[in-house]
């Protein structure tokens, strides 16, 4: 087995096992409930609140926005716990004591959550179609699928950065909640970005999800892949930027921990 194949194997093992380590304690029924009911609760809350506020004229706006935003559950919470779980398990010294490729270890932790987040969005959109009148008859479904995957990928990039923060502090749950709920506003899921104050629009533009939600709305309204292509390229760029920032923070953390002797005190 050459180095490349070994690294792919490491990536695959990391992605499968870290995901199982995170959710294996749940019974299948509990796991499915978390995947099906949680999106439904968020959709109900914001869609009916938004519809009430707009006299039912903008239901699709809230359905699509919240369905796509659901990906942040996997992208932010899931990825953070997958990376930060090593801190709680006390496995960091054993992880950093191996010769394994750090890039593969790091990004391997996020991969399964891209799939998981994509499934979460599909479930949420299904609720939208079945219960909230979302019409996908004019939608380029493959393009929408691609948009969902890319948006989930970019959100996982932010999750990787948050995961690294969780190696530095025990209070990352607070930060995670802050980011998750901020995304409900800043990503445009529930408020049109053009109506936000300028400084909030600036923040929106450097966050994942923003372009993904905008692109999804365009596709559901009948837009084509070429219409949303620029948004998708930017979304990938945003995801890579956060993912790489997270990776460099991860590498910096390892170096600092070895220099300062803080590997076990984090």
């Amino acid at each position: 087995m050459n180095t490349f194949t070994k690294n792919i194997y490491l990536f695959w093992q990391g992605t499968i096992l870290s995901y199982r380590a995170l959710f294996a304690w749940l019974r299948p029924v509990t796991y499915m409930a978390s995947k099906i009911l949680m999106p439904l609760a968020q959709m109900f809350f914001f869609v009916f609140l938004g519809s009430y506020a707009t006299d039912g004229t903008a239901t699709d706006f809230y359905v699509i926005g919240n369905a796509i935003q659901i990906t942040a559950v996997s992208g932010i919470f899931g990825v953070t716990f997958s990376v930060g779980g090593d801190r709680d398990a006390g496995t960091l010294p054993y992880l950093f004591g191996t010769p394994a490729n750090r890039f593969m270890i790091f990004f391997g932790r996020a991969f399964m959550h891209v799939i998981d987040g994509t499934i979460g969005v599909i479930i949420a959109l299904t609720w939208g179609v079945l219960l909230m009148g979302l019409d996908l008859s004019r939608t380029d479904l493959p393009a929408l699928g691609l948009t969902i995957i890319i948006t989930t990928f970019s959100t996982c990039g932010l999750g990787l950065l948050m995961g690294c923060l969780s190696l530095l502090t025990a209070n990352v749950m607070f930060v995670n909640n802050f980011v998750y709920f901020s995304l409900l506003i800043f990503s445009g899921a529930n408020v049109a970005i053009s109506t936000l104050p300028v400084w909030m629009q600036v923040v929106s533009n450097v966050l994942p999800l923003t372009r993904g939600i905008a692109a999804s709305r365009m596709l559901v309204a009948g837009g084509s892949l070429s219409d949303v292509f620029p948004l998708m390229v930017s979304e990938i760029g945003i995801g890579l930027m956060y993912g790489l920032l997270g990776y460099f923070l991860f590498a910096w953390f390892e170096t600092q921990a070895k220099q300062r002797g803080t590997l076990e005190t984090v």
């Binding site: 070994k6 093992q13 990391g14 096992l17 992880l95 191996t98 010769p99 394994a100």
Partner: peptide
């Protein structure tokens, strides 16, 4: 299995 993959 995971640690084996970490050690290549």
């Amino acid at each position: 299995r995971y640690f084996a993959s970490l050690y290549g």
